[in-house]
Amino acid sequence: METDYIVYKVILASAILILSLVVAMYSTLFERKIAAFFQDRLGPNRAGKWGLLQPLADGIKLFFKEEFIPNSADKFLYVLGPSISMFVALLTSAVIPWGDTLVINGKTYPLQVADVNIGILFIFAVVSIGVYGIMIGGWASNNKYALLGAVRASSQMISYELALSLSIVALIMTSGSLSLSEIVEQQKGFNWNIWYQPLGFLIFLICVFAEANRSPFDLPECETELIGGYHTEYSSMKLGFYLFSEYINMFISGAIISTLFLGGYDFPYLDRLGLSHNALTIAGFLVLFVKITLIGFLFMWIRWTLPRFRYDQLMRLGWKKLLPLAILNLILTGIISLSFGS
């Protein structure tokens, strides 16, 4: 490997890291604004114009809060929990293709940190570690509410991971590849996977809501019953890490949904505008960003529309509705691709 290639990768990785942190910061403001608009309010507007400095103020506040560790908590695991959550949330961004290639001085650089040929598997492996962050944090707090939240989180994530993975298996059957960049390449020209896998998309979307612990599946947090669930005992920036990783997760899952089903950085007729290759790549990145924003809006829209599921409803939906539907989708995909060719 040449040095400039390594330098490029380091720059790209840190750029994506900073991007996801900034996006997570501002999606807290975005969420609060959206929530306010849905409820006919104005939302935060004191700090800066339209409250634009609000995330900064929130961050500063979290940093200056007292760092509190309960006496009966397991000190090591207590710190480990939020660290895992944050680490895992940031890790998945590595395999997502953020755009096409950039040509600088005659060399091509892909806008993807690591083009692993098992990209999807990598994402699922990492996402399933995410539950440990919540579980360990909840258990180490030595608080019954936190423990209940942790138990709920782990059972919910395990239940929904099944349907999630099965809906992806059907997608892999049609695309024939596990590499995310190849999947995006195949979807070029409005050939998006959502047209071929509408049911799979729906199941995937619902399961992503559950995996990201977003309402209506926010039982692990559940402030009305569990006083915050797994992060009841957390304060200061450790709490901030948990809350922050939720928003990073939202951003990353938006990126994954757009990559897998909505054509990634592809937009119809974008390549006919006569832009240069690099400009086209940047336009593609912006398109992806718009898609992610829209999915983020959908996340918030659903959150402020639906009440939380009861625990048994959650389990029934996961095991008795989504799982059979995912299997049905898998079989249908198999039959159709066998009888009509790929």
Binding site: A36, F37, F38, Q39, D40, R41, L42, N45, L202, W301, I302, W304, T305, L306, L317, K321
Partner: peptide, 27 residues
Amino acid sequence: ESLYLPAIVSGMGITFSHLFKKKVTVD
């Protein structure tokens, strides 16, 4: 109905219509 989807969609319509309503909060 047990998939909750039609109800969810109509509920989302209601919340979306609130985006454009007059805000009751006074600055």
